[in-house]
């Protein structure tokens, strides 16, 4: 049995590895990664838009791959490497995707933006055929809703970084 379990308990002890830091936490067993990030770790850059895996606003990277943190228990991530929007910049230097989003105005209200950026960062590490054309980028960014519809600007931002 893993350390994440205790005898007939509805609480769990987990070690969350977020943005290179280790956060030991004692949580309700059903605490989602999203709620743990926002409420317990106070990393509020990751947003809740639907809480049911249908909007992508809560996208983070788990061991380098994009997931929705609303349908993931914090307990399931015990020991996994989580990257959130707060962890993208290195030594204060923004990630190129963040710069490109600013330049192309790939946001309006900004609420979905963290999820869009995380998804875009992940996309750049996925198969190249997922960003070969604008239509490919559109398809593989379709898990992130943007009601303000910055979509064409998001595509332009990703295209620019992908082409570099």
């Amino acid at each position: 049995m893993s350390s994440a379990t205790t005898a007939r308990s509805t609480e769990v002890t987990v070690e969350l590895h977020v943005n290179g830091r280790v956060y030991p936490a004692r949580l309700d067993s059903t605490t989602t990664l999203l709620d743990a990030l926002r409420d317990d770790l106070h990393l509020t850059g990751t947003k809740k838009g639907c809480d049911q895996g249908a909007c992508g606003a809560c996208t983070v990277l788990r061991d380098g791959k994009r997931i929705v943190s609303c349908l993931t228990l914090a307990a399931q991530c015990d020991g996994s490497e989580i990257t959130t929007i707060e962890g993208l910049a290195e030594d204060g230097v923004p990630h190129p995707v963040q710069d490109a989003f600013v330049k192309h105005d790939a946001m309006q209200c900004g609420y979905c933006t963290a999820g869009q950026v995380m998804s875009a960062v992940s996309l750049l590490g996925e198969d190249e055929d997922r960003r070969a054309t604008d239509d490919d980028i559109r398809e593989f960014m379709s898990g992130n809703l943007c009601r303000c519809a910055a979509y064409p600007n998001i595509v332009a931002a990703i295209r620019e970084v992908a082409g570099e």
Partner: peptide, 9 residues
């Protein structure tokens, strides 16, 4: 929650 969480190996 009243849900127990266990992770067998």
């Amino acid at each position: 929650s009243d849900i127990e969480y266990v992770r067998p190996t």
